[in-house]
Design a protein around this nucleic acid. Structure first.
Length: 544
RNA sequence: GGGCCCGUAGCUCAGUCAGGUAGAGCGCCGGGCUCUUAACCCGGGGGUCGGGGGUUCAAAUCCCUCCGGGCCCGCCA
């Protein structure tokens, strides 16, 4: 009786699809209702950097905010998801893996730096396009606003004017919240130097409200413990023409929130201070109640393996997509919002399998007793597909099994080999599905990049050498897998070797592991000539 | 100096944000199969949920506190 009541009570409590995103959405709606701001369109923003290679953190910034936006929609309200690209930000350092020639552009707005790869209009465009590619592959619908356009089109004009008119109070708030006194003296606006093109080197010292102008000197600035020299130029910038940008910490967020009527923005803890300052500026100076927030922890690289060492690359969505589906990566980013995440490529198989598990739950193939838990997991699955889940479940093959098969799949006929095995194991009835082909491709990439099996040198005694020589002769005489299979046993016994031991030796020679697929067919699958060569090589190696 | 996160089985971690019988994978032990795909299947051991206090009918979960590990901010973005 009690249990029944509590079950019913819990069932009634389920909000939306039962996830954290649904709960946040409900809170946003409730908050807006109380504020009386109108609920016709509820905007959610995600601000993304364009100054470095987009990594897993940039991706999750977008997916998390987008999920909230979707949750709002699921509760029957119109919403718009805005992706704001900070491409007016200056280049502060040359990211690892980027050409050294970028050094001369330190301090330049990234939208003004030529694309070192030559495929986009600017360095900033190149970077943001990498992120856009990933989120489009993930199926995210967004409205992109580039900082450069926003400023050039005067989107923030009114807010900039108010902030400049109230620069003293802005400076005071920054000081109170962070202890930094800089903006008590400097205007919260960085003009782009008309002479040298740098942005952080300028010091804005006077605002001329009647002319929409800001007077500045190009003095230079210390960024990341390095001094970026200014050119000494003195000039004036017209803020209505986008000849500069607001200081991020001293009101730029606030200006965006008000101008774009943002009602929610989740952010990483690294910018917590800036958000706190901007909340106050937004409320106290711009007269706009700031959006609701959620703070999330960062993603940290575990490092290791071959990845960062050989290629010096950060953990990018593109990297993930080599070994796992977009949905598996979305799962990683949406599953939890609390807690620091240490991620590495090692985790990809786990998330691939977990997604299959969620799919089973979603399609009712796996029962979850607790209705709340069930709703949450089904909801999570739907969010992983951003509310467009497949109509039918896919064929689920454990990632590790595919990796094992990929490891031993003969070169040139990988898909056929793996499909054969999968049919034998009962995973597959007919031909490969498109989804399964992708999964196989992931596993093949995995094996190729992480498990390049060194053909081990094995200590062979005289008897084993004789046995292997006999096997090679046998291989030359037949193509019948079953005969070969039997021969292995026969040869082993004839030479007084336990078959099991002989198999292990052969696996070590061919695969580097003491186990493997049924050898008779495999030796044919891998190409009889290849097999003979590998076995012969193992004999000659002994002699050196 | 300010803030945040983590501590759960031998290992890696879920579970904590919506309190309701402590879980998974790997590893380990035993068994099935043994002219063999490593797989897989069945069974097993194993945890004072970092310590202490509090709230509650009920706490890994909420609150306070202490210990240990880590991160972010304190320039700029």
């Amino acid at each position: 009786m009690e249990a029944l009541e509590s079950t019913m009570r819990r069932e009634e409590e389920i909000i939306g699809h039962g996830t954290w995103y649904d709960k946040i959405a409900a809170e946003i709606i409730e908050r807006e209702r109380k504020l009386g701001r109108g609920l016709d369109v509820i905007n959610v923003e995600s601000g993304v950097a364009a100054s470095g290679i987009p990594h897993i953190g940039s991706f999750s910034e977008v997916t998390r905010n987008y999920a909230v936006s979707l949750a709002i929609k699921e509760q029957g309200y119109e919403t718009r998801f805005i992706l704001f690209s900070d491409n007016k930000d200056g280049l502060r350092s040359v990211p690892a893996g980027m050409p050294d020639s970028l050094k001369k552009y330190l301090g330049f707005p990234v939208t003004d730096i030529p694309d070192p790869f030559g495929c986009h209009e600017s360095y900033g465009d190149h970077m943001i396009s990498l992120l856009i590619d990933a989120i489009e592959e993930a199926g995210i619908e967004y409205t992109l606003i580039k900082g450069s356009d926003a400023y050039a089109q005067g989107l923030l004009n009114e807010e900039i004017r108010i902030l400049l008119e109230n620069a003293k109070r802005v400076g005071q708030i920054v000081k109170e919240e962070t202890g930094q006194e800089k903006y008590l003296e400097v205007l919260p606006y960085f003009p782009v130097c008309e002479s040298c093109g740098r942005i952080y080197t300028t010091k804005a010292y006077k605002f001329l409200p009647d002319e929409n102008k800001i007077l500045y000197r190009c003095e230079g600035m210390e960024i990341k413990h390095k001094w970026i020299e200014g050119c000494g130029y003195e000039g004036e910038a017209d803020y209505t023409k986008g000849e500069g940008k607001l200081a991020w910490k001293a009101g730029e967020f606030a200006a965006r929130w008000r101008a774009l009527e943002i009602k929610f923005e989740a952010y990483g803890k690294d910018i917590a201070d800036s958000v706190r300052v901007n909340d106050r500026i937004c409320r106290e100076i711009l007269g706009y109640e700031p959006p609701m927030h959620a703070q999330y922890e960062m993603f940290l690289d575990k490092g290791g393996r071959k990845i960062s060492k050989s290629k010096g690359n950060v953990f990018t969505p593109q990297l993930w997509f080599k070994y796992g589906s977009p949905q598996s990566m979305i799962l990683l980013t949406l599953k939890r919002f609390v807690g620091t995440r240490n991620v590495s490529v090692d985790d990809i198989p786990r998330y691939m399998d977990e997604l299959d598990e969620l799919e089973d739950i979603y399609f009712g193939r796996r029962k979850i007793g607790d209705p709340k838990e069930r709703a949450k997991l089904m909801g999570l699955y739907k969010y992983c597909w951003f509310m467009n889940p497949p109509e039918k479940p896919s064929i689920h093959v454990p990632y590790n099994l595919l990796v094992s098969l990929a490891r031993v799949a003969p070169e040139g006929s990988e898909y056929q080999f793996i499909a054969d095995k999968l049919r034998r194991y009962g995973y597959l009835k007919n031909s490969l599905t498109a989804d399964l082909r992708k999964r196989i491709a992931y596993a093949l990439n995995w094996v190729r990049d992480f498990e390049e099996a060194a053909e081990a040198t094995i200590e062979l005694n005289e008897i084993e050498r004789k046995a292997i020589t006999e096997l090679v002769e046998k291989l030359r005489s037949t193509e019948d897998p079953n005969i070969i299979q039997s021969s292995i046993f026969e040869i082993a016994r004839a030479n007084g070797i336990k078959p099991k031991r002989f198999f292990q030796t052969l696996y070590r020679i061919l695969l580097g592991t003491p186990y493997g697929p049924r050898l008779g067919p495999y030796l044919i699958d891998m190409g009889r000539e290849n097999a003979i060569r590998a076995l012969t090589r193992s004999l000659t190696r002994q002699n050196t």
